[in-house]
């Protein structure tokens, strides 16, 4: 019983972070119709930015988080503006391939710049935890969970309540409607991708605190983000919270009751099943 409860707590805390990881991917997919295979690499990059702000400039990781997001926003904006806008009307397969190329470039560039060693952002309070009804709750994981949910909710407010957010949503419907808002599609695309990258950066900063970084984590994080986006659907940013929690709980329960080596079978098994049974996601419809 106690083990189960601890498993649930672990799964939920992990799920919050997963939701934030998938958020940027789902946003870019829904608005630009680009499945960004470099999304995990952007998360990885965010992790390293946070790591160097912490070890180099001694900035607390949770303070470094907004700085990291800002840096990644600039990176994402530039990638879309200078590169992806060149192929935005190409067949879906080409955009898939170019973001894969980006993933490769970022991964190897990271290996050259940061080396292949494992890194972790390790503030003084990293080991702090408290007990919740018998389950151990690490403070940094709880903080990461709260921040992830707050950012997800913040994006939802931004998309539904602000003129710019509405323009972004209109762009996902059609370009003509976007022009009616008086915004240039080129800039909206770049802004959207920038926001997606900023969210990846924030997720990366949190990931560096709760787990370990190396240049190769990107691919599996991209794959997990997919699973979450597919489960949650693309129509509502809050869907990723459900998707993230489902994946977090499934992984935690699988490693608890079946074995840690089966977590990938479980999470990707869910992906395959959801796609075959209900290609539009468990919640809502895709664009």
């Amino acid at each position: 019983m106690n083990l189960l409860w601890q498993g649930i707590v672990n799964g939920v805390l992990l799920g919050g972070l997963y939701a934030l990881m998938a958020l940027g991917l789902a946003l870019v997919w829904g608005v630009l119709n680009i499945v960004n295979l470099a999304h995990g690499a952007l998360i990885m990059l965010g992790g390293y930015v946070c790591y160097y702000l912490f070890t180099g400039a001694h900035i607390d990781p949770f303070v470094a988080l907004p700085i990291t997001a800002a840096v990644l926003f600039v990176v994402g904006y530039a990638i879309q503006r200078r590169l992806l806008n060149l192929v935005i009307r190409a067949p879906m397969f080409n955009t898939l391939l170019i973001t894969f190329g980006l993933d490769v470039v970022l991964t190897y560039a990271a290996q050259i710049a940061f080396s292949a060693d494992f890194r972790t952002v390790n503030p003084s309070y990293a080991g702090a935890n408290f007990s919740l009804l018998g389950a151990t709750v690490p403070v940094v994981r709880l903080l990461a969970f709260v921040i992830a949910l707050a950012l997800t909710f913040g994006l939802w407010l931004f998309l539904t309540r602000t003129p710019l957010g509405r323009a972004i949503r209109a762009t996902s419907q059609n370009l003509v409607a976007a022009r009616l808002y008086g915004v240039e599609p080129r800039r909206i695309y770049a802004l959207t991708f920038g926001i997606g990258a900023a969210l990846a950066g924030a997720a990366g900063a949190l990931y560096g605190v709760v787990s370990q970084l190396n240049p190769y984590i990107g691919t599996s994080l991209t794959a997990k983000s997919f699973v979450i986006a597919i489960i949650g659907g693309l129509s509502n940013p809050l869907g990723v919270i459900v998707g993230g929690l489902v994946l977090g709980l499934v992984e935690s329960m699988t490693s608890l009751y079946i074995g840690a080596t089966y977590t990938n079978v479980a999470s990707f098994g869910i992906l395959v099943l959801v796609l075959i049974v209900r290609p539009t996601g468990l919640l809502g419809r895709t664009a």
Binding site: F226, V272, L275
Partner: peptide, 28 residues
């Protein structure tokens, strides 16, 4: 029979998922 009903991104991602699952199954 199961996955060729999916199109575009969905087919690509689903086959990616199958590849991951197969790796994990064979490892066990």
């Amino acid at each position: 029979r199961a996955v060729l009903r999916l199109r575009g991104h969905y087919f690509a991602i689903c086959t990616l998922g199958v590849a991951e699952v197969m790796t994990a199954i064979v490892s066990n």
